[in-house]
Nucleic acid binder design. Structure first.
Length: 652
DNA sequence: CTTCACTCGTGG
DNA sequence: AAATCCACGAGTGAAG
């Protein structure tokens, strides 16, 4: 490859490249970004863009700050973290060549991204949202192929970065360093080569992945994922509105609270120590009084402690857990009580408040709020089961509005004046999926009859008519067991969470087997099918694959874990299929001005102007429950829909 | 200085 | 006998 001839410096060359690409029905593209928000698509600066199609490779620099040669060195003063000024040697680079302006490049390439050609990228949502800023907010139009998604469908268990995949498929190791993370300080010609190779390998990888997906009959789920990707692009661009003034108030409030609560712990303990260090907490709580401790007798080891015990090593007080579950057993001790209070407050302050506002002193903790909104990173390829993950920040683990502080955090997510939030939750989706797979039986028929599933389970175990089940029985024999069976929990776990003797737990599970034999038959059959395949795997409702090779492990505890994973993935993965389908359908039905903004496993959050609320509710209902999606399950789907001003108002 | 394992705590 | 599935992230402390 003669790199120089592939670098585009003028409009004539650019137009020629676009013409060449236009001969094909697909092309790949890739960008390089710089600036303080290089990894934030709604904020970053796009410095490079490259295109690749059969016989065409082009890389277009737009604002690379340096040239290709080091011509000297200077010293720059920088304060270290103790505030001391130190001098660092900094290379001086030659000037970069004259480059095309982004406005020109994105104007010339505008139609390419509007066309019906297949647009290919590795992690397409990053590149698409980043370039939309330069396209008057217009996202590229489908059809899409994101190679990160296709690679993940082909192997959900490995990390599907481009470089490892390229090494695997083509045996090429074209970038040993981390060029993509330091674009602005990397030589011009090196970035050009890197950007171009990324783009070309992405296109090649698309071809490999298409062939492998065809072999594995993964096209139906791949097309679903590409439809989901379109929805995700719109969500990523939109963001979730936040009550920023309330967030600042909450910071003030929590900071004073934490300070007081920290002092309360020290006072009770008679000394200061690091409250966030589990070992120091164990020392204070579990050491005897003559060694400055509280002399509490702990029950449960940490996971590391269990390993030590297994290995025959000596266990000390420091190997016992100090988690909230253990501490609750020692409530009444003044240190424990103060510590529990502190932990709750500190968790909310550091994870949620500082997590959103950022820490100006820490480079790796940026403010996550842009124009009053949070743009989380939803990854459709973020889990092994098919669910989404959410990061930077994670908006799928916002505290529930059960406590005052939890409510204040969740309440930060608001509808601006003139808008409403519509919160739509699938009710008991995993149990419905289980009933569908298990087929006719008490659970299946209960759902058909519209009876609450926890009541069904309790009635089945206690051999009572469902209208005679009391509230306590529903919780103890219904909810708790239903929770357990989805994850494959056993007698030991039931005994522990229900605080009952092991014998009693065994009895309850035996009764459940009697009342719901079809559930156990389904599990046995599923495992048999999974074991017969190589590698061992199951498929969800949409044909998504979860591979669990450990199913044939000679070690019994590894094999049992694999069995739980197989069963849980079949159910959790199929539920994920349903919510993904619902998102696509809802997005298509919603009026233009109504926007899906969040998805939390079984919940969709939509932001809607007041005058469109009724229409939007109808669209969401149709998207989540309409005939086209209901036909996937043999038991009825159900969704609870609430219209609110703050997310915290939607508690059940 | 960076990276990693570990513990803990949120959510579904 | 280590016996509950799937995530993200703050923070500690030791090792590279």
């Amino acid at each position: 490859m003669r790199l120089a001839s592939n670098i585009v410096y003028d409009v004539e060359h650019l137009r020629h490249v676009i013409k060449e690409i236009s001969r094909h029905d697909h092309f790949s593209w890739d960008i390089e970004t710089i600036g303080p928000y290089a990894t934030t698509p709604v904020r970053n600066d796009v410095a490079w863009i490259a295109f690749s199609a059969p016989g065409v490779d082009a890389v277009i620099p737009m604002r690379h700050p340096i040239g290709s040669r080091i011509i000297g060195e200077t010293k720059e003063p920088r304060a270290d973290k103790n505030g001391k000024v130190r001098y660092f040697r900094v290379p001086v680079w030659d000037e970069p060549p004259a480059q095309l302006r982004p406005s020109i490049v994105f104007e010339e390439t505008f139609d390419l991204f509007e066309s019906d050609r297949e647009k290919i990228a590795q992690n397409l949502s990053f590149d698409a949202i980043s370039i939309a800023k330069h396209r008057g907010g217009e996202l590229p139009k489908p059809p899409f192929h994101c190679t990160l998604v296709s690679s993940w469908l082909l192997d959900e268990n490995r990390l599907n970065g481009l470089k490892p995949r390229v090494r695997e498929e083509f045996g090429s190791d074209y970038d040993q360093g981390h060029t993509g993370k330091h674009i602005a300080s990397t030589a011009f010609d090196k970035v050009a080569r890197y950007n171009l190779l990324d783009t070309r390998f992405t296109r090649w990888l698309r071809n490999r992945n298409l062939a492998q997906m065809a072999e594995q009959r993964l096209f139906p789920v791949f097309h679903l994922e590409m439809d989901v990707l379109e929805v995700l692009l719109a969500m990523g661009q939109e963001g979730a509105p936040l009550d920023v003034p309330a967030l600042h108030d909450l910071r003030e409030h929590l900071e004073t609270l934490v300070e007081q609560q920290e002092a309360d712990v020290y006072r009770a303990a008679g000394k200061a120590f690091n409250l966030n260090a589990a070992r120091q907490v164990a020392e204070v709580l579990y050491y005897p009084q003559n060694r400055g401790g509280q002399g509490i007798k702990p029950h449960k080891l940490t996971s590391g402690g269990k390993k030590k015990k297994q290995a025959g090593e000596r266990i000390t007080q420091l190997d016992y857990t100090t988690d909230a579950d253990e501490l609750a057993k020692h409530a009444g001790n003044p240190v424990v009580d103060a510590l529990l209070t502190y932990k709750e407050t500190n968790k909310l302050l550091s994870t949620y408040v500082y997590g959103y506002l950022g820490d100006p002193t820490a480079k790796d903790r940026p403010c996550q709020i842009h124009s009053g909104r949070i743009h989380t990173n939803f990854k459709q390829y973020g889990t092994v089961t098919g669910r989404f993950s959410s990061s930077e920040p994670n908006l799928q683990n916002i505290p529930r509005p059960n406590t005052d502080l939890g409510k204040r955090i969740r309440g930060l997510f608001i509808a601006p004046p003139g808008y409403k939030l519509i919160i739509a939750d699938y009710s008991q989706i995993e149990l419905r999926v289980l009933a569908h797979f298990a087929g006719p039986g008490a659970l299946f028929e209960g759902f058909q009859a519209g009876i609450d599933p926890h009541t069904i389970t309790a009635a089945g175990i206690l051999k009572l008519p469902h209208d005679q089940v009391t509230g306590t029985q529903r919780t103890d024999y219904g909810k708790r067991i239903n929770f357990l069976i989805g994850y494959g929990g056993g007698e030991h776990l039931l005994a522990e969470v229900a605080k009952i003797p092991l014998r009693e737990a065994e009895g309850i599970i035996a009764l459940h087997k009697q009342g719901f034999p079809e559930i156990y038959a389904y599990k046995a059959k599923l495992l048999e099918v999974a074991r017969s395949r190589r590698p061992c795997h199951i498929r969800t409702l949409t044909g998504r694959i979860r591979r669990v090779p450990d199913l044939l492990s000679p070690a019994k505890w590894i094999r049992l874990k694999a069995e739980r994973q197989i069963i849980n993935s079949h159910i959790q993965g199929s539920a994920a299929d349903i919510i993904k389908i619902a998102m696509v359908r809802t997005h298509a039905e919603l009026p233009e001005e109504a926007k899906l903004i969040l998805t939390v496993h079984d919940e969709l959050v939509t932001l809607v102007p007041d005058h469109l609320v009724e229409k939007a509710v109808e669209a969401i209902r149709e998207g989540m429950l309409g005939a086209g999606i209901q036909s996937l399950l043999s038991v009825p789907l159900q969704s609870d829909i609430k219209i609110v001003d703050r997310w915290s108002e939607a508690k059940e």
